[in-house]
Amino acid sequence: MLPEPREVVAEPAGPELPGWPYPPDQAAPRVTQVAVERPARPGAPVRVRTSDGLLAARLVSRDRVHAEVALVAGGAMLLGGDRVVVGIRVDAGCALTLTDVGGTVAYDGDGAACHWDTDIRLGAGAALTWAGLPFVVAAGADTHRATTARLGPGARLALRETVVLGRSGERGGHIVLRTDIADDAGPVLVEELTAAGEHPVPGVLGDHAVIDTVTTVHGGPATGSDHPSASGGAVTLRLERGGTLTRWLGPATHLSPLGPPALPVPDTAELSEEA
Protein backbone atom coordinates (compact mmCIF):
# COMPACT_ATOMS: atom_id res chain seq x y z
CA MET A 1 0.00 0.00 0.00
CA LEU A 2 1.32 3.37 -0.98
CA PRO A 3 1.33 5.97 1.78
CA GLU A 4 -0.43 9.23 1.01
CA PRO A 5 1.98 11.97 0.01
CA ARG A 6 2.59 14.40 2.78
CA GLU A 7 1.40 17.91 2.38
CA VAL A 8 4.79 19.47 2.85
CA VAL A 9 6.24 17.91 -0.20
CA ALA A 10 3.94 19.38 -2.78
CA GLU A 11 6.51 21.85 -3.92
CA PRO A 12 6.01 21.70 -7.66
CA ALA A 13 9.16 21.64 -9.74
CA GLY A 14 9.57 25.09 -11.14
CA PRO A 15 10.30 25.26 -14.84
CA GLU A 16 13.49 27.14 -14.11
CA LEU A 17 15.22 24.71 -11.79
CA PRO A 18 18.89 25.31 -12.33
CA GLY A 19 20.50 22.50 -14.22
CA TRP A 20 17.21 20.98 -15.23
CA PRO A 21 17.73 19.11 -18.44
CA TYR A 22 14.53 20.23 -20.15
CA PRO A 23 13.65 23.67 -21.40
CA PRO A 24 10.53 25.12 -19.75
CA ASP A 25 8.27 24.73 -22.77
CA GLN A 26 8.88 20.99 -22.72
CA ALA A 27 8.43 20.64 -18.99
CA ALA A 28 4.65 20.31 -19.16
CA PRO A 29 2.57 18.33 -19.18
CA ARG A 30 4.11 14.96 -19.79
CA VAL A 31 7.45 15.23 -18.02
CA THR A 32 7.72 13.47 -14.71
CA GLN A 33 10.28 15.20 -12.55
CA VAL A 34 11.73 14.35 -9.20
CA ALA A 35 14.32 16.60 -7.61
CA VAL A 36 15.89 16.03 -4.21
CA GLU A 37 17.51 19.09 -2.75
CA ARG A 38 19.45 19.73 0.41
CA PRO A 39 17.44 20.77 3.44
CA ALA A 40 16.61 24.44 3.80
CA ARG A 41 18.14 24.43 7.27
CA PRO A 42 20.32 22.01 9.22
CA GLY A 43 18.34 19.16 10.68
CA ALA A 44 15.38 19.58 8.34
CA PRO A 45 14.44 16.87 5.85
CA VAL A 46 15.58 17.04 2.26
CA ARG A 47 13.31 19.01 -0.04
CA VAL A 48 11.58 16.97 -2.71
CA ARG A 49 10.07 18.64 -5.74
CA THR A 50 7.99 16.63 -8.14
CA SER A 51 5.88 17.12 -11.20
CA ASP A 52 3.69 14.54 -12.86
CA GLY A 53 3.69 13.44 -16.46
CA LEU A 54 2.49 10.13 -17.83
CA LEU A 55 3.97 8.88 -14.58
CA ALA A 56 3.02 10.48 -11.30
CA ALA A 57 5.60 10.85 -8.52
CA ARG A 58 4.52 10.21 -4.93
CA LEU A 59 6.70 10.82 -1.91
CA VAL A 60 6.88 7.82 0.37
CA SER A 61 9.31 9.02 3.00
CA ARG A 62 12.20 11.37 3.61
CA ASP A 63 14.76 12.28 6.22
CA ARG A 64 17.70 14.65 6.40
CA VAL A 65 19.57 12.93 3.59
CA HIS A 66 17.34 10.50 1.83
CA ALA A 67 13.96 10.48 0.14
CA GLU A 68 11.93 7.62 -1.26
CA VAL A 69 9.59 8.36 -4.13
CA ALA A 70 7.22 5.99 -5.90
CA LEU A 71 6.40 6.32 -9.59
CA VAL A 72 2.82 5.47 -10.48
CA ALA A 73 1.36 5.18 -13.96
CA GLY A 74 -1.13 7.97 -14.51
CA GLY A 75 -3.22 6.03 -17.00
CA ALA A 76 -3.11 3.43 -19.74
CA MET A 77 0.37 3.27 -21.14
CA LEU A 78 2.39 2.88 -23.21
CA LEU A 79 0.44 3.38 -26.39
CA GLY A 80 1.82 4.13 -29.82
CA GLY A 81 3.02 7.73 -29.96
CA ASP A 82 3.40 8.02 -26.19
CA ARG A 83 6.56 9.62 -24.89
CA VAL A 84 7.33 9.18 -21.25
CA VAL A 85 9.97 11.60 -20.07
CA VAL A 86 11.38 11.24 -16.59
CA GLY A 87 13.87 13.73 -15.17
CA ILE A 88 15.59 12.86 -11.92
CA ARG A 89 17.88 15.23 -10.10
CA VAL A 90 19.60 14.51 -6.81
CA ASP A 91 21.67 17.29 -5.35
CA ALA A 92 25.08 16.90 -3.80
CA GLY A 93 25.11 14.73 -0.72
CA CYS A 94 21.45 13.65 -1.03
CA ALA A 95 20.05 10.24 -1.79
CA LEU A 96 16.91 9.09 -3.58
CA THR A 97 15.27 5.71 -3.79
CA LEU A 98 12.79 5.35 -6.62
CA THR A 99 10.32 2.51 -6.79
CA ASP A 100 7.95 1.56 -9.55
CA VAL A 101 4.47 0.80 -8.27
CA GLY A 102 3.60 -1.33 -11.27
CA GLY A 103 5.26 -2.74 -14.33
CA THR A 104 4.66 -1.21 -17.72
CA VAL A 105 3.29 -2.71 -20.89
CA ALA A 106 4.11 -1.13 -24.22
CA TYR A 107 1.15 -2.08 -26.39
CA ASP A 108 0.90 -2.66 -30.12
CA GLY A 109 1.32 0.87 -31.46
CA ASP A 110 -0.11 0.02 -34.86
CA GLY A 111 3.02 1.35 -36.49
CA ALA A 112 3.55 4.27 -34.10
CA ALA A 113 6.64 4.10 -31.91
CA CYS A 114 6.62 4.90 -28.21
CA HIS A 115 9.45 6.35 -26.18
CA TRP A 116 10.56 6.25 -22.60
CA ASP A 117 13.40 8.66 -21.87
CA THR A 118 14.99 8.97 -18.48
CA ASP A 119 17.50 11.66 -17.65
CA ILE A 120 19.38 11.38 -14.37
CA ARG A 121 21.62 14.07 -12.88
CA LEU A 122 23.46 13.28 -9.68
CA GLY A 123 25.44 15.90 -7.78
CA ALA A 124 28.70 15.23 -5.99
CA GLY A 125 28.31 12.34 -3.58
CA ALA A 126 24.62 11.94 -4.43
CA ALA A 127 23.01 8.53 -4.69
CA LEU A 128 20.12 7.10 -6.67
CA THR A 129 18.67 3.64 -6.35
CA TRP A 130 15.93 2.72 -8.79
CA ALA A 131 14.33 -0.67 -8.50
CA GLY A 132 12.49 -0.76 -11.80
CA LEU A 133 9.69 -3.23 -12.39
CA PRO A 134 9.33 -5.18 -15.63
CA PHE A 135 8.81 -3.33 -18.88
CA VAL A 136 6.88 -5.59 -21.22
CA VAL A 137 7.13 -5.10 -24.97
CA ALA A 138 3.91 -6.51 -26.42
CA ALA A 139 3.75 -7.90 -29.94
CA GLY A 140 3.52 -5.04 -32.42
CA ALA A 141 5.06 -2.48 -30.07
CA ASP A 142 7.95 -0.39 -31.33
CA THR A 143 9.67 0.93 -28.24
CA HIS A 144 12.66 3.10 -27.57
CA ARG A 145 13.97 3.29 -24.04
CA ALA A 146 16.87 5.55 -23.23
CA THR A 147 18.47 6.12 -19.87
CA THR A 148 21.03 8.88 -19.63
CA ALA A 149 22.86 9.51 -16.37
CA ARG A 150 25.43 12.15 -15.57
CA LEU A 151 27.25 11.64 -12.31
CA GLY A 152 29.07 14.20 -10.23
CA PRO A 153 32.24 13.25 -8.34
CA GLY A 154 31.63 10.37 -5.96
CA ALA A 155 27.99 9.96 -7.03
CA ARG A 156 26.53 6.48 -6.89
CA LEU A 157 23.90 4.89 -9.03
CA ALA A 158 22.11 1.53 -8.86
CA LEU A 159 19.49 0.74 -11.47
CA ARG A 160 17.48 -2.33 -12.23
CA GLU A 161 15.92 -2.59 -15.63
CA THR A 162 13.92 -5.62 -16.63
CA VAL A 163 12.67 -5.87 -20.17
CA VAL A 164 10.34 -8.64 -21.27
CA LEU A 165 9.72 -9.38 -24.92
CA GLY A 166 6.06 -10.31 -25.20
CA ARG A 167 3.20 -10.93 -22.84
CA SER A 168 2.51 -14.54 -22.10
CA GLY A 169 2.16 -16.51 -25.31
CA GLU A 170 3.60 -13.70 -27.41
CA ARG A 171 7.06 -13.35 -28.92
CA GLY A 172 7.02 -9.61 -28.35
CA GLY A 173 7.70 -6.49 -30.34
CA HIS A 174 10.73 -4.39 -31.08
CA ILE A 175 12.87 -2.47 -28.62
CA VAL A 176 15.93 -0.28 -28.70
CA LEU A 177 17.34 -0.06 -25.21
CA ARG A 178 19.99 2.59 -24.75
CA THR A 179 22.00 3.27 -21.59
CA ASP A 180 24.49 6.09 -21.37
CA ILE A 181 26.22 6.67 -18.06
CA ALA A 182 29.06 9.17 -17.75
CA ASP A 183 30.85 11.21 -15.14
CA ASP A 184 33.18 14.16 -15.39
CA ALA A 185 36.02 11.89 -16.51
CA GLY A 186 34.08 10.45 -19.45
CA PRO A 187 31.76 7.57 -20.36
CA VAL A 188 31.29 4.71 -17.91
CA LEU A 189 28.79 2.57 -19.81
CA VAL A 190 27.30 3.11 -23.23
CA GLU A 191 25.12 0.35 -24.58
CA GLU A 192 22.43 0.10 -27.18
CA LEU A 193 20.59 -3.18 -27.35
CA THR A 194 18.27 -3.84 -30.23
CA ALA A 195 15.90 -6.78 -30.02
CA ALA A 196 12.73 -7.99 -31.65
CA GLY A 197 10.69 -10.90 -30.37
CA GLU A 198 9.91 -12.06 -33.89
CA HIS A 199 13.57 -12.06 -34.90
CA PRO A 200 15.68 -13.53 -32.13
CA VAL A 201 19.40 -13.12 -32.81
CA PRO A 202 21.84 -15.64 -31.32
CA GLY A 203 24.55 -13.79 -29.41
CA VAL A 204 22.31 -10.79 -28.71
CA LEU A 205 19.47 -12.27 -26.65
CA GLY A 206 19.09 -15.61 -28.37
CA ASP A 207 15.65 -17.05 -27.65
CA HIS A 208 15.41 -15.38 -24.26
CA ALA A 209 12.38 -13.23 -23.59
CA VAL A 210 13.70 -11.55 -20.47
CA ILE A 211 16.73 -9.32 -20.12
CA ASP A 212 17.21 -8.39 -16.50
CA THR A 213 19.99 -5.94 -15.68
CA VAL A 214 21.30 -4.38 -12.50
CA THR A 215 23.83 -1.63 -13.12
CA THR A 216 25.82 -0.27 -10.21
CA VAL A 217 28.21 2.62 -10.48
CA HIS A 218 29.79 3.84 -7.32
CA GLY A 219 32.07 6.66 -8.32
CA GLY A 220 35.46 5.07 -8.07
CA PRO A 221 37.84 2.74 -9.81
CA ALA A 222 37.12 -0.95 -9.98
CA THR A 223 37.88 -2.65 -6.71
CA GLY A 224 38.33 -6.19 -5.63
CA SER A 225 34.87 -6.17 -4.13
CA ASP A 226 33.26 -6.23 -7.57
CA HIS A 227 33.46 -9.98 -7.91
CA PRO A 228 33.14 -10.87 -11.57
CA SER A 229 31.09 -13.97 -11.25
CA ALA A 230 28.23 -15.97 -12.56
CA SER A 231 25.54 -17.02 -10.15
CA GLY A 232 22.14 -18.48 -10.89
CA GLY A 233 22.91 -17.96 -14.55
CA ALA A 234 23.47 -14.23 -14.08
CA VAL A 235 26.78 -12.77 -15.19
CA THR A 236 28.49 -9.85 -13.49
CA LEU A 237 30.65 -7.73 -15.76
CA ARG A 238 33.14 -5.41 -14.17
CA LEU A 239 33.20 -2.15 -16.08
CA GLU A 240 36.54 -0.62 -16.95
CA ARG A 241 35.83 2.62 -15.15
CA GLY A 242 34.47 0.92 -12.04
CA GLY A 243 31.06 -0.43 -11.20
CA THR A 244 29.35 -3.53 -12.43
CA LEU A 245 26.69 -4.68 -14.82
CA THR A 246 24.92 -7.83 -13.68
CA ARG A 247 22.70 -9.43 -16.23
CA TRP A 248 20.45 -12.40 -16.57
CA LEU A 249 18.79 -13.65 -19.73
CA GLY A 250 15.97 -16.11 -19.35
CA PRO A 251 12.46 -17.18 -20.16
CA ALA A 252 10.44 -15.58 -17.34
CA THR A 253 10.96 -12.82 -14.80
CA HIS A 254 10.11 -14.95 -11.77
CA LEU A 255 13.10 -17.18 -12.55
CA SER A 256 15.59 -14.33 -12.39
CA PRO A 257 18.17 -14.55 -9.60
CA LEU A 258 18.51 -10.75 -9.57
CA GLY A 259 16.93 -8.67 -6.86
CA PRO A 260 16.33 -5.00 -6.36
CA PRO A 261 19.57 -3.03 -6.41
CA ALA A 262 20.82 -1.51 -3.22
CA LEU A 263 23.22 1.22 -2.26
CA PRO A 264 24.09 2.03 1.30
CA VAL A 265 22.01 4.99 2.38
CA PRO A 266 24.37 7.76 3.45
CA ASP A 267 24.67 8.33 7.14
CA THR A 268 22.65 11.37 8.16
CA ALA A 269 25.54 12.39 10.39
CA GLU A 270 27.70 12.98 7.32
CA LEU A 271 25.43 15.69 6.05
CA SER A 272 25.17 17.38 9.43
CA GLU A 273 28.93 17.61 9.58
CA GLU A 274 29.08 19.20 6.17
CA ALA A 275 26.25 21.62 6.86
Binding site: E191, P202, G203, G206, V235, L249
Partner: peptide, 15 residues
Protein backbone atom coordinates in the same frame (compact mmCIF):
# COMPACT_ATOMS: atom_id res chain seq x y z
CA UNK B 1 30.90 5.15 -32.13
CA UNK B 2 28.12 2.53 -32.28
CA UNK B 3 27.28 0.99 -28.91
CA UNK B 4 25.42 -2.06 -30.18
CA UNK B 5 25.72 -4.66 -27.46
CA UNK B 6 25.36 -8.43 -27.54
CA UNK B 7 24.62 -9.58 -23.97
CA UNK B 8 24.56 -13.29 -24.71
CA UNK B 9 28.01 -13.14 -26.32
CA UNK B 10 29.30 -11.09 -23.39
CA UNK B 11 28.03 -13.67 -20.91
CA UNK B 12 29.55 -16.54 -22.88
CA UNK B 13 32.87 -14.68 -23.06
CA UNK B 14 33.06 -14.34 -19.28
CA UNK B 15 32.25 -18.01 -18.71
Amino acid sequence: IPASGSPQTEGWAQA
